[in-house]
Nucleic acid binder design. Structure first.
Lengths: 343, 343
DNA sequence: TTGAAAGCGCTAACAC
DNA sequence: GTGTTAGCGCTTTCAA
């Protein structure tokens, strides 16, 4: 591939001049400018970004680590990040960690070697040592979602305790008392927080906790399906279920239907995430919404703030809190209940 | 950040030796090896991949261009690509082109500058000149899906004409004659091919084509919704609809329900893609399946073949054809019809 | 087995 | 305005 020297030679100028034409057009005479530009076109010269990055110590590349690209939540985050990155002239390296700590760490290593300008970590499983490494290498990073160990970092997150609380409380308000919870993997902080919110709501309403009503899922459709199958086998099956994410809620709905039961008449469901499909399935899913696309945007902007202003990590440490919101639709049986009350 | 020279100095060896330890461990004495490894750890040295890539003319990075990450089809492709890339020790740059030709071209430019080792293009809008550029720069690439102009390339694709044909033919077999089609943007080859398959099936069955039965959508849920609204206003609304993708089919179902009509009794629906959600909505969607995850895998493997064997583009030009498959579920009314026949 | 040194292609400080 | 040149951090050839 043709390089800057060949361009310089053919244009009858120095490499510095060619470089100037590309990077500081205003410092070069119109005449030379034109000449150089022309030979660039003639030779089909494409500057070598590696060399450029090496000299500049800047790659114009950031990385986005997500646990599972097949969960519709994350493409939304990715789009948010990508949108602002592209606008800023950056590329984004996509790393799908599959919720494997070692894979995430693997990636981290590769990314440091590649000298990415910044990192966005979602639902990270990394530990303090890993973050110490990132900080030592002075790589700006932003986290989406909280994680174990309460790492100091710029962070965009929603309060899952509150979310879990809101979901459960809504079911309680409607009038249910036998409320089950299909949680995500307990190994994840997010799952435990949602569970905590669930418990808090029950407690506040003086509903005693039945441990059999809490089943652990995998945050996938299948997990919701299996969870319901388990719950319905109980001597006293629940009247309502709070699923820790929409995917599991969808699986739950599928399972409930397969048992010949109706939603919400026989079993009410509330999900979490408000993925697009949730408002399109039958019955439309009542769920807790978190604006993930926006979270991606915000995280990326935060990251670029760090990158561009060369902020020390400790300077500004922002924790941006995103409020989860209850989206009332059909699956919770809210309407039926209201009708009942007013008739 | 600490560099190879500092490691060499502290370890009391030359930079060449440090480099050897990292890249050709077998050519170095155990003693030196150990020493170097130790100082590497001590100094927390992470090799600079940029410099390495510059010297090696190899970045261990490939790029994946997709039109719309929010369409569940593409995360599947991305996962396929990412899975094999990661296994090969490569990173993947994700580029969301939003079906904008200029954005795709923009990206291409950036990617060439970054000297990616290879490219995977899905549903590309690029033209011959762009591909000429890629070829001239000798960047291996694989295309997923056909595109305008019939570019010579390694390619993994499904026959959309056949897919459209299969979908329509199935509706005809069931007994429908008033069959509408909600197409994707006609500007896209894929949309036109599906339409072509639709027409072919009608023609074969001697059903005359009614142009009012063909409406153009946007491949999004909304497009399907709007399409149905338009179709149902016709003096003789269709009994069945073939939607060019599942997203539009889902929108269509929503619209049909909102009109108080039943599926498939009043209007039958067939989609295209078989995204995961299709088997979970009510009624379960009959659709044409293309194994996109596998297509991603295959495309990536093909790409790495080119990269690793340094194949000339013209050498081996593979066109891998993936068979679309009809998935019969509920939305087409197939069962009802069968029951009718046997009663 | 190891070291010296020439490149990889670019940027920017410095000199003219 | 423009050219010369010293890096940026690595790999690899060649010689020892």
């Amino acid at each position: 591939m043709v390089n800057i020297r060949q361009v310089a030679k053919k244009a009858g100028v120095s490499v510095a001049t060619v470089s100037r034409v590309l990077n500081h057009p205003d410092t070069v005479s119109p005449r030379t400018m034109e000449q150089v530009l022309e030979t660039i076109k003639e030779l089909r010269y494409t500057p070598n970004g590696l060399a450029r990055s090496l000299a500049l110590k800047k790659t114009s590349t950031i990385a986005l680590l997500i646990p599972n690209i097949l969960n519709p939540l994350y493409p939304q985050v990715a789009k948010g990040v990508e949108d602002v990155a592209h606008q800023k002239g950056y590329n984004v390296l996509l790393c799908n960690t599959e919720e494997k700590e070692h894979k995430e760490r693997d990636y981290l290593e590769m990314l440091i070697e590649k000298r990415v300008d910044g990192l966005i970590l979602t639902s990270s499983l990394l530990r303090k040592v890993d973050f110490d490494q990132i900080k030592e290498k002075q790589i700006p990073f932003v986290m989406i979602g909280k994680n174990e160990g309460n790492i100091e970092a710029n962070r965009v997150f929603t309060d899952y305790i509150l979310g879990g609380y809101l979901a459960t409380q809504h079911l309680i308000e409607i009038g249910y008392t036998a409320i089950a919870h299909i949680s995500g993997p307990k190994s994840q902080l997010a799952s435990r927080e949602k569970l905590q919110g669930y418990k808090k709501a029950l407690q506040e309403a003086n509903i005693s906790l039945d441990e059999r009503y809490i089943v652990e899922g995998d945050n996938e459709i299948e997990g919701g399906y299996l969870g319901v199958k388990k719950l319905l086998k109980l001597p006293e099956p629940p009247q309502a279920i709070f699923a820790a994410n929409d995917l599991m809620a969808i699986g739950a709905i599928d399972a409930i239907k397969s048992e010949g039961l109706r939603i919400p008449e026989d079993v009410a469901i509330v999900g979490f995430d408000d993925i697009k499909i949730s408002s399109l399935i039958e019955p439309k899913l009542t769920t807790i919404s978190q604006p993930v696309y926006k979270m991606g945007l915000i995280a990326a902007r935060l990251l670029f703030d760090c990158i561009e202003n060369n902020l020390e990590e400790d300077d500004f440490q922002q924790n941006i809190f995103i409020q989860p919101k209850l989206m009332v639709r059909k699956s919770c049986g809210c309407e039926e209940r209201v009708r009942e009350i007013f008739n």
